[in-house]
Amino acid sequence: MPHPHTPQHSAHHDHQHQHQHDGHGSQDGQEDQAEILDLDAEVLAEHIAAITAWLPVRTPPRQIVDLGCGTGAGTFALLDRFPDAHITAVDSSDRHLQRLREKACARGVDDRVRTVRADLDHADWPDLGTPELVWASASMHHMAHPDRALREVHDLLAPGGLFAVVELAGFPRFLPANAPEDRPGLEDRCHVASERFHAEHVPHRGAAWGPKLTDAGFTLDGERTITVHIEGSHNAAVGAYALGSLRRVRYSVADVLPAEDLAALDRLLDTDSSHSILRRGDLTVRTERTVWAARRDS
């Protein structure tokens, strides 16, 4: 995630879980993205755990691959869910993999985690073993050739293995409809403008993943949508999460948003301002995540 919205897979391109990155951004940019990924993991921990608990595995997997792992939100949720498993965490950002390794050491699970730096848009993938479960959260839509990547995963999986694709419904929302007071509905207008940006730069976001999975040879074994609604009035992490997310939205809408809206957005993002989003007591996290469970039959 070197740049908040680098068209080529800054896996947080549309949001926190941008996990496929080009790996060439500034150190500060990667650090900022790592921080927002960590906030995503903290704020949405309960919902990520609900997804891992739902996975229709036939037997607990011993080998798991996390594609586009970022700083490890999915990796550690899967380690908790499957205590006998070992995970290969794959990402193209050295900084994110370093942070993931640091977390693994701090949690005492570093012997269960292997990190691999790889650009999954390359035709030749590294050796990732023969996992019984592959997890890809908010990373597949950043692939330049997702259909090819789906076939790679199909061939990678052990027979009977499961592929879990998790995708988000764009950026989360945080503000009430009547906010901010001087420009009510600002967030909605930002999202409309951002959708136009991402339709051009992230064309596979919102793709029909069910048909794509079956076309790649998988059998669909389940689909579930998780609705997220988290009150943030007593959660400092929600404010930081909202700040980081709206900063990324600003990048994609700055050239098209009316001047009055851009000024109002900048007031929200100014942490020294009395209008700062960090000073609001009415924030909520509202979004959806959909998971598709697809099986390799043979």
Score class of each variant (00 low, 15 high):
residue 126 P to I: 09
residue 170 G to M: 08
residue 90 V to S: 11
residue 133 L to T: 08
residue 93 S to C: 00
residue 146 P to I: 05
residue 188 D to G: 15
residue 125 W to K: 09
residue 122 H to D: 14
residue 104 A to L: 03
residue 184 P to K: 13
residue 131 P to V: 01
residue 135 W to G: 01
residue 116 V to P: 01
residue 136 A to D: 09
residue 101 R to E: 15
residue 134 V to H: 04
residue 145 H to N: 08
residue 150 L to R: 09
residue 159 P to M: 06
residue 168 L to P: 08
residue 149 A to E: 03
residue 110 D to Q: 14
residue 190 C to L: 15
residue 136 A to I: 10
residue 99 R to P: 00
residue 133 L to N: 06
residue 150 L to P: 06
residue 99 R to F: 02
residue 87 I to A: 02
residue 113 V to H: 05
residue 94 D to I: 10
residue 163 F to E: 05
residue 182 D to L: 02
residue 153 V to P: 09
residue 188 D to M: 14
residue 112 R to L: 01
residue 188 D to E: 15
residue 177 A to V: 11
residue 171 F to H: 13
residue 188 D to N: 15
residue 105 C to N: 14
residue 178 N to Q: 15
residue 101 R to D: 13
residue 120 L to R: 07
residue 134 V to L: 03
residue 180 P to L: 07
residue 110 D to I: 00
residue 173 R to M: 02
residue 127 D to M: 03
residue 117 R to K: 14
residue 170 G to R: 11
residue 152 E to A: 13
residue 186 L to P: 04
residue 149 A to Y: 02
residue 158 A to P: 01
residue 124 D to M: 05
residue 116 V to A: 02
residue 135 W to R: 03
residue 146 P to L: 03
residue 97 L to F: 14
residue 156 L to H: 11
residue 128 L to G: 00
residue 128 L to W: 06
residue 88 T to G: 06
residue 167 E to W: 08
residue 178 N to R: 13
residue 129 G to K: 14
residue 124 D to V: 12
residue 178 N to M: 06
residue 92 S to I: 02
residue 156 L to P: 02
residue 168 L to C: 09
residue 104 A to K: 10
residue 125 W to N: 09
residue 129 G to L: 10
residue 143 M to I: 04
residue 184 P to I: 11
residue 152 E to F: 06
residue 130 T to D: 03
residue 151 R to Y: 02
residue 172 P to Q: 03
residue 126 P to K: 11
residue 188 D to P: 07
residue 154 H to L: 01
residue 124 D to R: 11
residue 106 A to F: 13
residue 176 P to V: 07
residue 164 A to D: 07
residue 172 P to T: 04
residue 89 A to G: 10
residue 119 D to I: 01
residue 169 A to M: 11
residue 117 R to N: 09
residue 164 A to I: 03
residue 147 D to L: 03
residue 98 Q to K: 15
residue 171 F to A: 14
residue 126 P to E: 13
residue 108 G to N: 12
residue 111 D to F: 03
